[in-house]
Write a protein that binds this DNA or RNA. Sequence first.
DNA 1: AATTTTGGTTTATAAAATAAACCAATTTAA
DNA 2: TTAAATTGGTTTATTTTATAAACCAAAATT
Lengths: 94, 94
Amino acid sequence: MLKKLNPLLHSELRLAIISLLTAVEKAEFTYIKEKTQATAGNLSVQLTKLENAKYITIEKGFKGKMPQTICKITKTGISEFEKYVENLREYLRL
Amino acid sequence: MLKKLNPLLHSELRLAIISLLTAVEKAEFTYIKEKTQATAGNLSVQLTKLENAKYITIEKGFKGKMPQTICKITKTGISEFEKYVENLREYLRL
DNA sequence: AATTTTGGTTTATAAAATAAACCAATTTAA
DNA sequence: TTAAATTGGTTTATTTTATAAACCAAAATT
């Protein structure tokens, strides 16, 4: 029987964010924005949701004088992503 | 670069429907309902969307005296599903 | 003959995604 | 030196989507 897909991950932008973050140690807001082609507003909202779920951490600091937001995936984020992929496989017949 | 996911297919229920239909020649409404665990209302709405997009055909008839709705995937549906799977692979790193 | 079940559709509500508006600080250009 | 534009975001409003609730006709059951 098909398993329920984690709705937090079954979102194009949030999935893209998590996918990106699994591949790097950390990433800046602006880097994620560029890679995902998302608008800043949408990205901000989705990052906050992932942070609230503890799938990622967000640290705000400065690079020189400009504000900088750095995101990292957590262990929870990684394992939920892996589970999601396994569940989705059955839908995709992979 | 990550490709845009077809929003018609990037929906848990519609993806489940299409996935089911790729595996069988045709399927009844009640069969799909049982397999997907969807409510009748939700299933009806999502089937209509897939029909409007010509991803499936819907034929209404009778089995004995009871109404019967039979769904089949179209060539468009199959090829869009395949494209979707290929695009999604990159997100999933498969 | 009233009640429940089957097989749905239609409509209303809740949740989600997206876009638009906004803000503070910084840099650039006149 | 001050006005305009850019950077790096957040907040709020709007649109879209998913889901649930209400409903309907016919059939079957009690």
